[in-house]
Design a binder for these strands. Sequence first.
DNA 1: CAGCGGCGATACCTCAGCAGTATTGATGAG
DNA 2: CTCATCAATACTGCTGAGGTATCGCCGCTG
Lengths: 288, 288
Amino acid sequence: MRTLGDVETRELRYFVAVAEELHFGRAAQRLGMAQPPLSRAISQLERRLGVALLQRTSRSVTLTEAGEVMLHEARVALDAVEATEHRTRRAAHATVDHPSIVLATKAGASSELLAKLLDAYAAEPGSIRVDVTLCGPGEQTRLLRTGRADVAILHQPYDDTAHFDIEELRTEGQVAILPAGHVLTTREHLTLNDLADVPDLPLPRWPRPDGSYPAGPGPEVQNHTQLLQLISLGRSLMVSPDSCRSQLRDDVVAVPVADAPTITTVIAWPPHSRSRPVADLVRTALRL
Amino acid sequence: MRTLGDVETRELRYFVAVAEELHFGRAAQRLGMAQPPLSRAISQLERRLGVALLQRTSRSVTLTEAGEVMLHEARVALDAVEATEHRTRRAAHATVDHPSIVLATKAGASSELLAKLLDAYAAEPGSIRVDVTLCGPGEQTRLLRTGRADVAILHQPYDDTAHFDIEELRTEGQVAILPAGHVLTTREHLTLNDLADVPDLPLPRWPRPDGSYPAGPGPEVQNHTQLLQLISLGRSLMVSPDSCRSQLRDDVVAVPVADAPTITTVIAWPPHSRSRPVADLVRTALRL
DNA sequence: CAGCGGCGATACCTCAGCAGTATTGATGAG
DNA sequence: CTCATCAATACTGCTGAGGTATCGCCGCTG
């Protein structure tokens, strides 16, 4: 008989799968197992905790309030376990191989800032190799939480910085990127309201984490190059931090958006990091 | 055959036990199991990770660099798993029972501040019961990490706030608490150097987390009441935040210590807390 | 309203792998 | 050289995780 206080990661993974799918069959498939043992594992978990996590009818599965909490906490815990594995591996690797750190950043964002940072850090005494991982929006925090990256460049308020130590690097307003020659480009300033319903320039649709796209009129895009091309073709628009102006082609125009949220670029790292190189990199960033 | 990326909490618990004891036999005893399966489990873990965590001779066990990382990360991960369990239980409990939140604070610290906070919060609309857990120094952070508490009052720089969201409540200098009539009480200010080696007032010795005491000349103490009594008997001294003056008996005297680190009292909560009551409590604290 | 289909739970079985006992092998101390 | 200590190995037993077959519940449909 297993005692209380002995939850295994396997159980957490099972629960997260069911809680996300809200369907035992699909969850089992995703986990590469049969449905009955999954059902059993979940109800054992519930019995051991003495807590109902799911409300099941034969037609549907829903989360209880406690289940919602569990889902949230379990994701965090699983990330921490995964981070243990990755960071240990990387630590071992660093001792034999050349040490390096992994920096995660959103593709196409803050590139001059990043370039300056990497140059400045490389010039520091005792600096090591920095592997830059370009990832999709919102992916950086996950890499950092799961230990696949050591530092990340994030953008408040878009990215959730809750689990990290951060230092602010730069704060800037936002501009709308519009096709050259469009009516709106004649204005000095715009507001978000002006941009919400421009019939000929619908907002683009980005893929969700699972790869599907939300419904809507705008074009589906995977990256900023695509989007910029669509904008220059007069098919869409975007709102972006001020600093992106330096990289714009001349067939698009930037117009300040007065009431768009201010973007703060931050450098983030796991809260208990004891990595000397990470500390050096952060210090370098703050001196820029 | 278990695939990579499937570390179980059991393995982490085993590793932490061995890494802490640096002795397979004792670790096995602590885990309530025999030594051979523990040895096997650890070497399986190493093989699966492809990383040497321990250097064993038949006389001693030491951690490799990767092992140090693993120990640190594994503790964090295990706390997160434990937190999952506790918070889920508490969430379920809250829905049937009366909801409440648990506040952890160091015994004997910031009592007037805390009293004011609890009163002010109780007067708020929608406030719920607050269970106060008084714990030993440094214990608060563990309660918060493992989900046994929802908020804590911490004191920088003593407590490690790395894993939490915090708001500063108060900053204050420190004073030395001395027996009334002692020579040092005639001074306007003291320095830490003045206090380091007062032959008749040795610094007290507090228990370590495992219950043992460090060696030294000072008296062993378990709590502040004990220590205050020893001070009034002319056997010891202590350095404490300024605000403790209001609770002093008249047979001890407080003298400012010029170079002692400034103490910041902060309210801390887990970084991803979505608890409405916690947010209310923090807001109330900031308005004090 | 009866039959069908989808879905979670139950019953029962198999086997992987975890834990226990006994023993070996290595190494430092006396 | 011998003994004591401690981790690793060999072998065995059994718990419990996972698979298959099936049931029971319920919404849908003709």
